[in-house]
Amino acid sequence: MERLEWAALMPLLGAHQSIAGGLHLAFERINRVGGESLQIFTANQRQWRAKALSDEEIRLFRVAWQEHGAMPVASHASYLINLATDEPEKAEKSIVAFTEELIRCRQLGINLVVIHPGSHGGRGIEAGLECVTRSLDQVLLRSGVLDSELKILLETTAGQGTSLGSRFEELGFLLANSRFPQHLGVCVDTCHIFAAGYDIRLPEPYAQTMAALTAQIDLAQIHLFHLNDSHKECGSRVDRHAHIGEGRIGLKGFSLLLNDHRFHHLPMILETHKGEDLAEDVENLNRLRGLTR
């Protein structure tokens, strides 16, 4: 089935892939598993600073992207970044790191950049959200992307510790209070919202969860889903990804999402564990495709 025909029937299913050996090789990996969308790290997510991309790295990436059908591609920012901190040194370090991420993404042509809102560190949700808002505005100004189509996607979180983003209202606050809302959107992670207490396993709670989501966030602001089952129960506030159908959400919950016509045009990306042969990605994608009606 051709890509456009498939897209008309269901979301663009894909997976996060390694960039080992070169950014452009992520396209070979997603092609091997039959993915229709891709997520990558543009640099080592465990390091604060990355060397600048060479012209050749950028060229190879863009050529590979075109050769593999110009599929949707998202970047996931480093987990080290905390835009909610009020400690001057840590805040500046995070703003610089995220600014450099946006610059790399613009060079590569990536317009979707996922990031966790951050941790307030015990200062309280309101103070943390205000800090994230200021930091996001700074990043957008410094990175020079305001004349582009790039969007920062604030990811829903499980609510571990003092992390922000586990309640839809918190993401709604960030979208509403940014100076540049046209450059912000949301990435919904199924494991995270489930762990945060939003049940999606059966039709009624699924409808309630989506009503709560769209009460705070306009459908047009949702640009991406992460598809992960959950090892932990609903409301556990523990982020532990499981393979599709092997966790507490189960196949029914994913069937409800995949057959929700409101999201048929969106990329939906796996973030589940895999070996070097990527067999788990193939299995998970097959399970997901088997759920569509």
Rank of each mutant, 00 (worst) to 15 (best):
I30Q: 09
H273I: 04
V73N: 12
F225R: 08
G253I: 01
E89K: 06
G290I: 05
D229K: 08
F263H: 13
W48E: 12
T99Y: 02
N82Q: 05
R289S: 04
I244D: 12
N259V: 06
P88A: 00
L266M: 07
R262N: 15
V188C: 01
V63Q: 15
G197K: 00
T292I: 13
A158D: 14
F263N: 14
N82C: 02
D218W: 04
L25V: 03
T42P: 04
I30T: 12
L140D: 09
I217H: 10
P267N: 02
S148Y: 05
L291P: 15
R289F: 04
R262D: 12
G35C: 02
R289E: 15
R237L: 11
E246F: 02
A8K: 14
D189E: 09
M10N: 05
Q208E: 15
D260P: 05
N82W: 01
M71N: 06
L270Q: 12
N111T: 15
G247Y: 09
E130Y: 00
H243D: 13
D218N: 11
L174P: 14
I81T: 09
G235L: 05
T214I: 05
L175Y: 09
E246M: 03
L227M: 13
Y206I: 10
F98T: 10
F194C: 10
L164Y: 12
Q208G: 10
G124T: 08
S75P: 05
A176Y: 03
E149F: 00
V188T: 09
M1C: 11
E204A: 07
S94T: 14
D86E: 12
A279W: 07
S163A: 07
L213C: 11
M10G: 10
N82A: 05
T190A: 01
V96H: 08
D229A: 06
R248I: 01
K274R: 13
W65I: 02
L174F: 05
G69Y: 04
I200G: 11
C105I: 04
K252P: 03
E92L: 00
T85D: 09
L141N: 12
L53Q: 11
E283S: 12
P72G: 03
G144F: 01
R179D: 12
L171D: 07
P205F: 00
T99M: 02
V282K: 11
P72S: 01
L150N: 06
E170R: 06
Q17N: 07
